[in-house]
């Protein structure tokens, strides 16, 4: 559905996005993670044809995102990170405008979404809070039957109950066969709705993670009494080992735990904690304070 090939955007000498290769499959909910300035919004704006790539290309359903942007926009419902709407209109007028501007616009559906998001449509946009404007943008842009949703931090500024409704809508979109690309800073909600995530750092795509695979991985936190023996060979593939301090070691592994239990029993250990490896652990590998991760010794 969405393909980027060596997609690069530079502002002068500053690389906002470098050599990004991505393939989002149809029907997938795809998360984009990274701190501010990592290049998430630049990537989404390149997909929307709002920016011209410096090099490389992006396509949606075989259409070039920049050259064929009008045809691309027929396939996409896009909610920007900071949704600004026409200040001199009321909420209802905004919904009517967006349902008229598209051939496939559906005013009744937009009203229904607004009702679900508990939005007062009689209020002037200029008198709406940031969260209300965000809800209005969601209702305005997601009312049509587009096969792809691109949502740039759609839950930012929303209260927890509305946030849950938005995540529910993303789930419904997945069940309806839509593709969703979704950027967020809230790891828990990405973990909740996404099938796959990409992590960006300083304009580079540094990691892609299938979340189902993540659920099979574990983190083992060991407080040792003495030197630990080397891990068994069966555990080595994909396992990382990190010395937290003189006594504590953290091991992240995708291997079945049965291979590890015998090793743990023989090791000089004062304490051990085993937990499923969450998205936080993967994210911290690239953006955490300590990134002194190393392969198994």
């Amino acid at each position: 559905m969405v393909i980027t090939e060596h997609l690069t955007k530079r502002y002068g000498s500053f690389p906002a996005l470098s050599d990004c290769n991505l393939h989002v499959r149809s029907g997938e909910v795809f998360g984009l993670l990274g701190p501010n300035g990592a290049g998430k919004s630049t990537l989404l704006r390149l997909l929307m044809g709002l920016l011209a790539p410096t090099s490389g290309r992006a396509s949606i359903d075989g259409l070039d995102c920049h050259r064929d942007r009008v045809r691309v926009h027929r396939l996409v419902g896009y909610v920007p990170g900071d949704a600004r709407l026409f200040r001199t209109m009321r909420g209802r007028q905004v919904l009517r405008f967006f349902s008229t501007i598209r051939d496939d616009g559906d005013y009744q559906r937009a009203l229904h979404i607004a009702q679900r998001l508990d939005l007062d449509l009689d209020r002037w946009v200029m008198l709406m809070s940031t969260g209300m404007r965000q809800k209005l943008a969601l209702a305005a842009c997601l009312a049509s039957e587009q096969p792809l949703w691109i949502l740039d931090e759609p839950t930012a500024n929303l209260d927890p109950s509305v946030r849950a409704v938005v995540l529910e809508m993303i789930g419904e979109a997945r069940r309806a066969g839509r593709t969703v690309i979704f950027s967020s800073h809230v790891l828990s909600e990405v973990e909740e709705v996404c099938d796959r995530v990409a992590i960006l750092r300083a304009g580079q795509l540094v990691h892609q993670q299938v979340l189902a695979e993540l659920k099979e991985q574990h983190r083992i936190l060991i407080t040792r009494n003495g030197a630990l023996p080397p891990l068994p060979q069966t555990m080595e593939t994909g396992t990382t080992w990190q010395e937290l301090d003189a006594h504590r070691v953290q091991i992240d592994t995708p291997q079945p735990l049965t291979n590890l239990l015998a090793w743990l029993a023989a090791a000089p250990i004062a304490d051990v904690q085993i937990q499923p490896l969450g998205l936080r652990a993967v994210y911290d590998r690239f953006h955490g304070e300590s990134t002194s991760m190393q392969a198994v010794p």
Binding site: M48, L50, H73, V76, P80, A83, D103
Partner: peptide
């Protein structure tokens, strides 16, 4: 300046 261009150009209009 008002930030509304992004929403406008995300629609299928040239």
């Amino acid at each position: 300046n008002r930030g509304t261009m992004e929403m406008l150009l995300a629609q299928p209009v040239s």
